[in-house]
Design a binder for these strands. Structure first.
Lengths: 235, 235
DNA sequence: TTTCGAGTTAACAGCGAATAAACGTTGCTT
DNA sequence: AAGCAACGTTTATTCGCTGTTAACTCGAAA
């Protein structure tokens, strides 16, 4: 019943914080989606009805009408997939969000990668055709197998137990081999747009990753350090 | 949604320090952009609205209205890409800058080359057409291959281990073959506009480069010395 | 020959990264 | 509700690398 086209899926983003809106729009476009934006709840509601998007990203806190209201009103006559963006990851928010009929929620701050994964998943579930990028569920590089569906990493037959952030970080590297990324870029992609901690956090996670992924963690071959620039994953 | 033209992208530079403003404008023009300048925050704001530039370089410290304010005011009705030029590379500055809705920031002192790279990246992201120069990821000259993504130099099948400055310097030469550059010019481009060290620093780096790049470092063929003028890279 | 610019080498200070460990938070178990 | 385990982040320390400068040598131009 949702719109289904041969063209790329349309995503409506309703978010008042300018910089986040920009980042979201940009990331979505890069993935191949068509993006429509609004920074007020009432505008969002109007656009949702005019444009019939295939998916909606909806901030909870909004000027005009808040996200919860918008969601409720939309649900009266549509079952378009909705992902709520909530400020505080509190249990109550989550419940409140899902109660209104949202299909998923994600707490700020969130990594772009995770959000994109959820968007993709939700669109697939909702049966939207023409996935802009049918990312394979398993990414392989050398003797490494990363299964995004099972959230599991297999190396030489044995399953590596990965922490969530480690997994995300490794997946990010696997998907962008042979290119240097600065700590800032990595923080933006893996941690989230508004993570404001120190960039040394990356170092530590790199280290942990190396201990699981490298033959000799002290002499890394896969995840190389490019002094003064960042890190590079050797495809 | 942003302004997009067939003509070269317009860049607005707002900077109060005369010499830096001059350098910036000059470098941008050489890259093929159309440049508009202002040395006060209020003038910058006015010009931004009149001229609708495709990108803005905005100093944080400004007479009139400071850069943060200008950025905030612009963001109310525009999503033109903005790069902030910050004096102190402190983490807090970064956050403050990005919070106002800036798309990128760069800490002084910075090399012109890096700035140009960011300008290019941001314009590409924002979807501005008519890229003045779509820089290829790999630059080749003779048996030299410089890979900017991997930050790696390959010569005759073997990978050369390069220090950061060496890499930048070599890349600079590769991109400007057959032309003499004075030490001052090289310092400006590769080191940064307000590097205040001695110019002999260049000599030493040239020497190190030659040892890695020349067949006979004592009789350089690729990086030639033009006595009294500077150095020249033989394309 | 004299002078000035460039080559060469080594010393040193400062920075960036690796590492280990502590801390605070969260979520789960009992 | 309390205790516990796991995880993410921060901090401190160590270590090695890199950039810069200075001193000396060499060679070319005047």
């Amino acid at each position: 019943m949702t719109t289904s086209t041969a063209a790329p899926p349309r995503v409506l983003v309703v978010e008042d914080e300018e910089s986040l809106l920009f980042t979201l729009a940009h990331s979505l476009k890069r993935e191949g989606y068509t993006v429509v934006t609004a920074s007020r709840g009432d505008d969002g509601l109007r656009l949702a009805r005019e444009q019939k998007p295939d998916l909606i990203l909806l901030d909870v806190m909004l000027p005009g009408i808040d996200g919860i209201q918008v969601c409720r009103m939309l649900r009266r006559d549509s079952d378009v997939p909705i992902i709520m963006l909530t400020a505080l990851g509190g249990e109550s928010d989550r419940v409140a969000g899902l109660d209104t009929g949202a299909d998923d929620y994600i707490a700020k701050p969130f990594g772009m990668r995770e959000l994109m994964a959820r968007v993709r998943a939700l669109l697939r579930r909702s049966g939207a055709r023409a996935q802009p990028e049918a990312e394979p569920p398993v990414v392989i590089s050398g003797d490494l197998q990363v299964d995004r569906d099972r959230r599991e990493v297999v190396r030489g037959g044995e399953v590596l137990r990965m922490k969530p952030k480690e997994f995300e970080l490794l997946l990010f590297f696997l998907q962008h081999p042979g290119r240097v990324f600065s700590r800032e870029q990595i923080l933006n992609e893996v941690w989230g747009h508004d993570f404001d901690g120190g960039h040394r956090t990356v170092d530590v996670h790199i280290r942990w990753l190396r201990q699981k992924v490298e033959d000799d963690p002290s002499n890394p071959v896969r995840i190389r350090t490019i002094r003064g620039s960042g890190y590079l994953f050797e495809g």
